[in-house]
């Protein structure tokens, strides 16, 4: 068991060190949701009225509504950032160190995933702390209950990043991921508006949003922040995680050629 834990600790420490060295990445990870919270939400506060829906017990402001969605956004972008760095690692060679290690490949990829989740959780808590400074307070226990929810949602979004990285052959193709994965996932979800609001304009869009795993990740976080468990969201997120992880393990299996060698 020891070699497994040693590799987990080393991979996590390396990711954390990389993150600390990339201060711009940390800043961007915080600025992005804060812009949404302090500029976008302030602007739409008057336009978007919200009724009382679970888990909320009373009327809430729009800023309060979008906080869980922005936590999910941080993890979504972090998952894609990890995916980008995996593609970069594969092009540069350091990914080969992982893939040629005698430890099981699934374990090493899982370690990489866990390391990314740890980094994303740090970002989420930093964001929640800043949001609190701006007067958006959540139930005290919610800050603790949200931790396991963030681990599960982080794993699901990280596994999605892993799956994407196994299908992308070149770094240049990554821009497409932004257009075809991140933006649709984020906007077709309950992160920015409740689904009943979406149904008013289009039942079809509402149905698409309801199928989006990111919607369930956001709802899992939202309920956890208010000390409640959304079982449907939990099951949906766990199922998505299993599918994405399974797909990425197949993608990184040498028999399927994710790490296709250069000819020479």
């Amino acid at each position: 068991m020891k070699p497994y834990l040693v590799s987990l600790q080393a991979i996590t420490a390396r990711e954390a060190m990389r993150f600390v060295n990339q201060r711009a990445r940390f800043l961007a990870a915080l600025v992005r949701p804060l812009v949404w919270l302090l500029v976008f939400a302030a602007g739409f506060r008057a336009a978007l009225g919200l009724s009382i829906i679970p888990p909320y017990q009373t009327y809430i402001t729009y800023e309060v509504y979008i906080v869980p969605g922005l936590c999910g956004m941080i993890q979504l972008f972090n998952g894609m950032q990890s995916s980008l760095s995996l593609v970069y690692d594969r092009e540069m060679g350091s990914m080969r160190l992982l893939l040629t290690s005698p430890l099981p490949r699934w374990w090493l990829l899982f370690c990489k995933l866990l390391a990314g989740v740890a980094v994303s959780i740090l970002q989420v808590y930093a964001f929640l702390a800043i949001a609190a400074l701006f007067g958006i307070h959540l139930p005290l226990m919610g800050y603790i209950y949200v931790l396991p929810a963030l681990v599960i949602t982080g794993l699901m979004l990280g596994a999605l990043g892993l799956l994407i990285s196994s299908t992308i052959k070149q770094l240049e193709n990554f821009a497409g991921v932004m257009n075809f994965v991140i933006f649709p996932m984020f906007f077709l979800s309950s992160a920015l508006y409740p689904l009943w609001k979406m149904a008013e304009s289009s039942p079809l869009l509402r149905d698409i949003c309801a199928l989006n795993p990111f919607s369930h990740a956001v709802e899992l976080i939202r309920f956890a922040l208010y000390e409640q468990l959304n079982l449907t969201a939990l099951l949906w997120v766990c199922l998505s995680f299993a599918v994405f992880l399974g797909g990425s393990l197949i993608g990184y299996d040498p028999a399927f050629g994710a790490s296709r060698p250069r000819r020479g």
Partner: peptide, 15 residues
């Protein structure tokens, strides 16, 4: 283009 890198990828189980 002789196949050296392909052979190495097979020897290291990258493929």
């Amino acid at each position: 283009g002789a196949g050296k890198s392909t052979l190495f990828s097979l020897l290291t189980r990258l493929f």
